[in-house]
Write a protein that binds this DNA or RNA. Structure first.
Lengths: 223, 223
DNA sequence: TGCATTTTCAAACATTTGTTTGAAACTGTT
DNA sequence: AACAGTTTCAAACAAATGTTTGAAAATGCA
């Protein structure tokens, strides 16, 4: 029995490993990250990973779980008021969580990477963490679009909104190279929120208008 | 001198390795892909990689280059006519290239992965392949927005458009898990193009209106 | 055919990797 | 102080990986 039964004995090195591993996993991916790299950077012994966690894979799952629950925590964002306000709150909360300088910066990147290079842990991540977010957004979009919209239309709109936000996570290495100078505005969450919100509201209104006109012509054809 | 000086001697296994490696690299990433895996799946000898290419890294660069030039080839899309039409053509060409079932399916994913897990090859990829695309889109957005827009505004709009398209590449593993059933519409390029176009046009008009109203209030304040 | 060049092949090599081990150091409790 | 439980540590191990090697096979050309 290697682990103590008391609630919190001395989880010093354990947390150290989690934090360090998360940072490196997010930067280099699972396979490219070596246990020696983690332990060296954390200043702990090589065997510590296998002692506190069963193996490297288990450590990775724990790190991902940590990022999940941190993500879920910030996703409350009381949703009251008109749907426009809800959308603004959603976008702000989403971007804020992705780029929150308070929370460890690697968590957003790690989840982004997990999507590009799916591991067995992705299934749980989707079910526990992403699905509720998707549901919240779907509800908002439905309220904004009105009853005439199809499921596929709503889905595409939700994807358009998420895609705009995630771009800054997925492609940050590319944008860094595209604009070698400064480009600090990518982390100006207020400005980003404002842009994505207005762009999306504009897009939604356009599509709502499209739906209405289509319904009208259909009615006209029927009559 | 291992390599022949004649233009195209017998590049049978060489091309076989390139194709197989591209597929596996796109699926598993650079580090997670082993030379043995490539050669086994390609049905060639283990040493073939080091013979035809210097080493694994060189093979990876060649594979990336192949994906680049295939990407660049499809990016001509004569841009004439009103800017709306140009935008439609751009979006269609972009999505079409990302999901072209004709071209090897791994090329889009490979470039997407390269952004999430940047390797030394990313710098060349950005300069040679991505920058021209970004310039074309910027020009279109500028024409659509009019003179009053700032550089930052144009950039964010371009990112919004690219983000919408790239979402389906970056997050396809997630969407697959979010919607276990069918969801074949994600590869219906015509429908996708139509959606992204209308959503973006709506977003752009909204922001253009925002710019105009801001300019008006500013003028009012000045006078 | 004869010969040089190019390509393939099996085997081995040097490193790196994740993991294990057993002893030492540390901690809290009696 | 004595002891059991917990944690750290250096060393080593087994497996996997990228690469090299030298000989054999294939190929192209006179």
């Amino acid at each position: 029995m290697p682990r103590p039964s008391s609630p919190r004995p001395t989880p010093e090195t354990r947390d150290l490993i989690l934090e360090t591993a998360g940072r490196i996993f997010a930067r280099n991916g699972f396979r490219a990250t070596t246990v020696r790299q983690i332990t060296r950077e954390a200043g702990v012994n090589l065997a510590a990973v296998n002692y506190h966690f069963r193996d490297k894979q288990e450590l990775y799952v724990r790190v991902l779980q940590l990022a999940h629950q941190a993500a879920a925590r910030t996703a409350k964002a009381d949703l009251v008021g008109p749907p426009e306000k809800k959308l603004l709150a959603f976008i702000h909360g989403f971007l804020d969580h992705l780029f929150d300088p308070q929370r460890p910066e690697w968590q957003g990147r790690l989840i982004a990477r997990e999507m590009a290079e799916p591991s067995p842990a992705l299934d749980r991540l989707v079910a526990e963490s992403i699905l509720p977010v998707k549901k919240r957004l779907s509800r908002i979009v439905r309220d904004l679009l009105g009853p005439g919209a199809t499921e596929a239309q709503m889905r595409k709109i939700a994807f358009s909104i998420l895609g705009q936000c995630l771009f800054y996570v997925h492609c940050c290495e590319m944008t860094k190279r595209l604009f070698p100078k400064g480009l600090d505005e990518t982390h100006d969450i207020a400005a980003l929120t404002n842009h994505v919100f207005h762009f999306s509201i504009g897009g939604i209104t356009a599509i709502r208008r499209q739906i209405k006109s289509k319904a009208k012509t259909k009615k006209k054809n029927v009559s």
